[in-house]
């Protein structure tokens, strides 16, 4: 009786562990086109066995988007930017961390406090004035703050967080 019940229990535990891990991994849609962004770290949802989220442009565009106009220290004049809301993206992958490590194509990276960006409609912009952005024009993705709408974000500290040519996010 003891042996049977023990092995049954083990089986049960094993089953639940599998269920638990499966329930969070690889349930998001899979990219069909070229991957433009990977998200790793403390996230509960992913679209791969190793718990990484890979997104192509179509997937990014299917997520809740936001458009705003702003000036930046790196551009001339006012431009309209459209992109996925970072808060929505993080919710989509069920991110649980306090910090976000943002890495660019040239491997420049910076740490952004989630608490700092949470109250604002900050986007990973993929369109500038209606056009997709090439790498030479800070594309394909640019972490953009609505500086013109929220002057309190217009600081040196926030400038360094506005990474262009973004390729990866790590939730820490």
């Amino acid at each position: 009786m003891g042996i049977i019940s023990q092995s049954a229990l083990r089986l049960c535990i094993a089953f639940f562990v599998v269920i638990a891990s499966v329930s969070h991994a690889d349930e998001l849609p899979h990219p069909k086109g070229q991957v433009v962004l990977t998200i790793t770290g403390k996230i509960l949802n992913s679209n791969s066995e190793e718990g990484v989220v890979r997104l192509d442009m179509a997937m990014l565009e299917s997520l809740p988007a936001f458009t705003f106009q702003t000036v930046t220290p790196w551009t001339e004049g006012l431009h309209t930017y459209k992109g996925v809301l970072l808060n929505e993206l993080l919710a989509w992958v069920d991110a649980e961390g306090d910090q976000l490590k943002v890495t660019a194509l040239n491997d420049y990276s910076t740490l952004v406090e989630v608490s700092r960006i949470k109250p604002y409609p900050i986007i990973l912009a993929y369109k500038s004035d209606g056009d997709y952005m090439k790498v030479r024009n800070k594309g394909p993705l640019w972490l953009l703050y609505p500086l013109s709408d929220y002057p309190e974000l217009d600081t040196e500290g926030d400038y360094s967080s506005m990474v262009w040519q973004v390729k990866a996010l790590v939730v820490q």
Binding site: T72, P73, W74, T75, E76, L105, N106, K134, V135, R136, N137, K138, Y159, W164, Q165
Partner: peptide
């Protein structure tokens, strides 16, 4: 191509904006 684009991006960045 990526390195080419990145170099181009750098030049563009240096050519415009207040910061540079």
């Amino acid at each position: 191509l990526l390195r080419y684009e990145l170099l181009w991006g750098r030049v563009n960045m240096l050519k415009t904006g207040d910061e540079t």
